[in-house]
Amino acid sequence: MDLFLQTLLNGLLQSGIYALVASGLALSVGVVGIVNFAHGEFLMIGAFLAWAASASLGIDPLLSLPVVALAVFGVGALTYRVSIRHVLLAPELNQMLLTFGLGILLQNLALMLLGGNTRTVSTPYQASSLQLGALTVGGPKAVAFAFALALLGTLYFVLYRTTLGRQMRAVAQNRRGAQLIGINVDRVYMLAFGVSCGLAAVAGVLVSVLLFASPTVGLVFALKAFAIIVMAGLGNLTGVLWASVLLGVSEALVQTYVPGGGGWSDAVFFLMIFGTLVLRSFRGNR
């Protein structure tokens, strides 16, 4: 029983990060209408920036987090200006391939400059843990989860309670209409895309603490985020939270209870994405 509860708890904690990455992706899909295949690479940039700050300046990742988030927000906004903006009216194929190319570019740029090694960030609380009755929670995991929750709270507050958030949701629902009532759609797109990248970077900072930084660390998270927003239904922000928990918990269950999990758990995960997509395509329609 304890093992089961422990597994559930691990899954829940993991889902905080998933929700961060997926909310970011949902924002870019929902508001800008772009599926950003390079989303994971912005996470990777965040992870490396946190690692760099920690390795060279000795700054704790959780302290560098706001700066990293802001920096990657800027990179995202710039990316929107110089590339995404020019394919907004192009066929979906072109948009997809553009961000796909961007992802390949960023990932391999990192590989070129930094090599393929994984970089770990060491923090004083790395090995600490909390004891909750019979359950154990790793310190970094708990902190990361708390951060993720706080950020998601802020994001949803911004989206539902501020002018900018209302503008974003208005644009998401009806671009032409939003334009007619005087919303600067281009600016909203730029901000939304920037925030989307910023959220990925925050997740990256947390990943650098929990896992490591490496050129390819983002890909898996991006795919998971994609699976989550497909499960939630495109552009459904609250659905993202539930789908994240579902994914996190089911992954934890597979790892704990499926024998020989290791090598096969990847296959299970990709089979899940594949199955989700295929089943959705055959349901609903007529």
Binding site: S83, L97, L98, F100, G101, L102, G103, I104, L105, L106, Q107, N108, L109, A110, L111, M112, G115, G116, P215
Partner: peptide, 14 residues
Amino acid sequence: VKNGYLVVYGLVLM
């Protein structure tokens, strides 16, 4: 370009 030659492919694609 030794490591990460795909950088060229990403750039060419974009």
